[in-house]
Design a protein around this nucleic acid. Structure first.
Length: 257
DNA sequence: ATGACAGCCTCTGGCTGA
């Protein structure tokens, strides 16, 4: 079972690239982030024609997450991140696919820091940790996949100095992310590649892709039962170099059936 | 110190992103 996460940075702008990737890689579960659209603006029909369908939580202009499967049979398990009824941003959805629970996460960026956006990020991470506790307690295969907007360590960024003041590297952001690990969640890409430099994002600006100046911010966190089934993980890096690419690449895991 | 890219709405500039 191949489960992937892909921040598309605008699903309409990315539609040819997304459908091409679905055709070529044939993932069994796809977590999407940054749809940047809602309602009639979501290309649900085009995705169905490509053989996929699922659960959607869009938002006009920004944010937006979805979980897709071939045949479109995921069951919505949770819509929105619990813990703050005032939060109207579309950043979190869960679905059940067979015995597996998958979450598609678009964690707030938090820049500039300090400031209200950074406060929102940290509060959102507390809510995510609370939800992760609940899911962990189920003792089921659970995958928390998405754009975490956290660079876990200095080994996950091309230039730590360049990102020193960024919300993605702040000690508070990293500490909250580490608490997932302390709880017992496995960072799948790091489990597969314990020490290498692996990027999942390259800025559009300043020739970041050409210089291979990237970040690792898209993560798949596995519950213990899911981690037991992990057989491989990787980054579909080549898609970053194609025409009209997202600034993120797809990241995937392979689980034993 | 600033802007660089890119996508989207308010739409030919402003906002957000990371």
């Amino acid at each position: 079972m191949k489960i992937a996460t892909y921040n598309v940075n605008g699903i309409n702008a990315r539609l040819p690239r997304l459908i091409e990737w679905l055709d070529e890689q044939k993932p069994d579960v796809v977590c999407l982030q940054e749809l940047k659209g809602d309602g009639d603006r979501l290309p649900i029909k085009a995705i169905e024609e490509a053989g996929y369908g699922g659960v959607w939580m869009g938002q006009k202009g920004f944010n937006g997450v979805a979980i897709l499967t071939p045949g479109g049979d995921p069951r919505e398990y949770q819509r929105g991140l619990p813990g703050d009824p005032e939060d109207v941003q579309s950043r979190y959805i869960e679905a059940e696919i067979g015995d597996v629970i998958v979450a598609s996460i678009y964690l707030p960026n938090g820049n500039p820091q300090p400031g209200p956006k950074f406060d929102y990020k940290l509060a959102w991470m507390e809510r995510l940790l609370a939800r992760a506790e609940e899911l962990y307690a189920l003792e089921r295969p659970v995958i928390l996949a998405g754009d975490y907007n956290v660079i876990p360590t200095d080994n996950d960024v091309h230039s730590p100095a360049a990102m020193e003041d960024d919300a993605l590297t702040q000690p508070e952001s990293r500490a909250a992310f580490r608490r997932l690990g302390a709880m017992g969640w496995t960072d799948a890409l790091r489990a597969r590649f314990p020490s290498g430099k692996i990027w999942t994002y390259w800025d559009y600006q300043a020739g970041a892709w050409q210089r291979d100046a990237g970040l690792r911010i898209d993560h798949l966190m596995l519950s213990p039962v899911a981690a037991d089934r992990l057989v491989d993980a990787g980054v579909d890096k080549e898609y970053r170099g194609r025409e009209k690419a997202s600034d993120h690449t797809p990241v995937w895991i392979m689980l034993a059936e």
